[in-house]
Design a protein around this nucleic acid. Sequence first.
DNA 1: AATAAAGTTTCCTTACAGGAAACTACGCTG
DNA 2: CAGCGTAGTTTCCTGTAAGGAAACTTTATT
Lengths: 217, 217
Amino acid sequence: MPPKNAPSRHISALKKGEISMDRDIDTKLKLEQYIAMRVKTRRTEQALKITDVARIAGLSQGMVSKIENAQVSTSLDTLGRLCDAIGLPISQLFSDYDRPTGSAQLTKAGQGMEVVRRGTEKGHTYQLLSYHRGKKTTLEPFLITMDDASEVFPTFSHPGEEFIYLLKGRILYRHGNHLYEMEPGDSLSFDAEIPHGPEQLLEVPIQLLSVIHYDDH
Amino acid sequence: MPPKNAPSRHISALKKGEISMDRDIDTKLKLEQYIAMRVKTRRTEQALKITDVARIAGLSQGMVSKIENAQVSTSLDTLGRLCDAIGLPISQLFSDYDRPTGSAQLTKAGQGMEVVRRGTEKGHTYQLLSYHRGKKTTLEPFLITMDDASEVFPTFSHPGEEFIYLLKGRILYRHGNHLYEMEPGDSLSFDAEIPHGPEQLLEVPIQLLSVIHYDDH
DNA sequence: AATAAAGTTTCCTTACAGGAAACTACGCTG
DNA sequence: CAGCGTAGTTTCCTGTAAGGAAACTTTATT
């Protein structure tokens, strides 16, 4: 915590754009520095002035300024009010504080993991486009390729929701007692518990993108 | 905040098991009550005594006790040290604080509902590919079209997971402090709370499919 | 240039976080 | 049962820093 009357080193660096958002996230900051950054960003995103926030939160504008510039540490009560005023849930405020960063998974074209989907035969390819090791995920994307127009499919049913997008070919897709004819660029969203699946391959080769969210509660 | 010398009402209720963990999370507690609960749970899970934690955190055992019993509100510095001592990351501590608890639809190519995404400008099109009337859904797919290579995007952050699939063009996509270069057929899956978004449009026109699962618990 | 708006800093007060130590409750042993 | 040790709670106290009011500085507008 710098001497009270001195401008914060951090602040002058921010003003000069020397420390980027990215680097701040990399390095574990003191809490008040982290809060300062997040609050200021959020406020400006919301096009709110310090005076607006101060009024809504029942704080002085001086205090809001000092918090945003990491000149003081705030009490929990004040922090709660401030976050309410700028529409930043506390859970979201701290969500990046001590998180490992940047762990997205990139899957290059054609390099998804080939999987076998139960109840299906040859004549198509199922590629899983995202498979996390460790962290539990409920979102599962597939790239499905189908070449054999004579192939017959069972219907599937599982908890959750599904979104499919047709990339290539033409297909007749079943959901419950409805049949949807799909062409490239068409998409379909549905409750995955109702029996669904390819009914007829109208024009091969077919490429279908399927994103399943398994309902885990 | 109860009178300092009175036992906290909340605490006596907890001792009698009248208020369950689940219900406490449902109702938005005051921050120090929420912290008390989480810290105490974590400490006992770790089979640590108050005296151990106090020593490790450099606090008095009285202070640890008072925090755990919501008799005081703690400063951010003290909170950080306490959490380090019990191995509870701040991001995890607050992750559940204020979280809200939520027919096939065919969309033909080019006929998704055009939406405006806040913080973004002209030069691109956002088409929502699924919009249920009535039943609440947590899976939200978009088809995003971007034509203006000079366009600049903010980063987005929201609870949940996201899957994106590049259909056309080339793009540099940011997730946290990582940048991913994507070409047609490439896909990316990630925790949507970490700031993310298009960093640079490398080759337009770009068509990007984005499926967001909003985390509703 | 003058004025208003927006944000920062200084000076000051006082509330309460945090510590030390007394107290209470519980478990174990002889 | 008494004594002792352990674990946690509460009381009493003090110093510091959060938070406010207002002066000051910076920025934007006319």
